[in-house]
């Protein structure tokens, strides 16, 4: 079942070029794209692009998500941290994240740091927002059980509140990963010499539509693979969940 739609898309893609709906220079048919991918791989460039992009996504994601977990836990649990951080973070969240790009280039030069920072910003907010919402949404009745046993605030956080907000955290991580892939492409548009985003703009300037498609398909496949990994982690970590979504797992 999950393969039907992708197969249909490829069939439609191929068919529409064959019947002349699109010109081949606008929409190269799948075999042409495949040939371009193989040629790029033989020149050793596709591997470099893929690894560069994955490296940026992972580094930026780890930095952004870690920061979000620390700050989200603090604002979720501590009134004072909430008062100090929440208004600022909410304001920063309204800045369209792409608007950071020119500023980051100015501050950090054109090397790796601005790209990784942009990815980190992209990953940060979904994780932060979901974690805080998860902590706020923990069932008061479970917290009361901890109170009956005279647990300290720290013990209550560790043994009740954080495990109870794990589903929201994982949702945040998934969305954060999606954002990271989105932002890495934009980051690579500016001042890059490698990466799938660079390949996209570079091919556009040299009118290599086939290579643009190679980059797009690679991004799609990689994004999907990373999402599958997080889903697998989710399924393992949340086996205890009793919801419609988890019904088939149990």
């Amino acid at each position: 079942m999950p393969w039907i739609l992708p197969v249909l898309i490829v069939v439609f893609w191929w068919g529409s070029v064959e019947i002349g709906m699109f010109a081949a220079f606008q929409l190269p048919p799948p075999p042409v794209v495949l040939d371009a991918a193989i040629a790029l791989w033989r020149r050793g460039l596709l591997q470099v692009d893929i690894l560069a992009t994955i490296g940026r996504v992972l580094t930026g994601f780890v930095i952004g998500a870690s920061l979000a977990v620390v700050l989200g836990t603090l604002t979720g649990l501590l009134r004072r941290a909430e008062d100090a951080l929440e208004p600022t973070l909410q304001a920063l969240r309204t800045v369209p994240t792409l608007a950071w790009a020119p500023l980051l280039l100015l501050w950090e030069g054109i090397d790796e740091p601005p790209k990784i920072t942009l990815v980190a910003i992209g990953a940060f907010f979904p994780v932060y927002v979901n974690l805080v919402a998860g902590i706020r949404g923990v069932d008061r009745k479970l917290v009361e059980v901890a109170r009956v046993y005279n647990l300290t605030s720290l013990q209550t956080a560790r043994r009740v509140i954080l495990p109870a907000s794990l589903p929201s955290l994982i949702t945040g991580l998934r969305l954060g990963m999606t954002q990271a892939w989105l932002f890495v492409v934009v980051a690579e548009f500016f001042g890059s010499s490698s990466g799938l985003g660079f390949r996209l703009t570079d091919s556009q300037q040299s009118s290599r539509v086939d290579l643009m498609f190679v980059a797009l398909v690679a991004l799609t496949i990689l994004g999907k693979l990373f999402d599958m990994v997080i889903r697998a982690v989710e399924e393992r970590a949340l086996r205890w969940r009793d919801t419609i979504g988890s019904a088939k797992a149990s």
Binding site: K141, L142, E144, V145, A164, L166, W240
Partner: peptide
């Protein structure tokens, strides 16, 4: 309590 209030995890 009235409800079991077990920790689901």
């Amino acid at each position: 309590f009235q409800e079991p209030r077990l920790f689901p995890w």
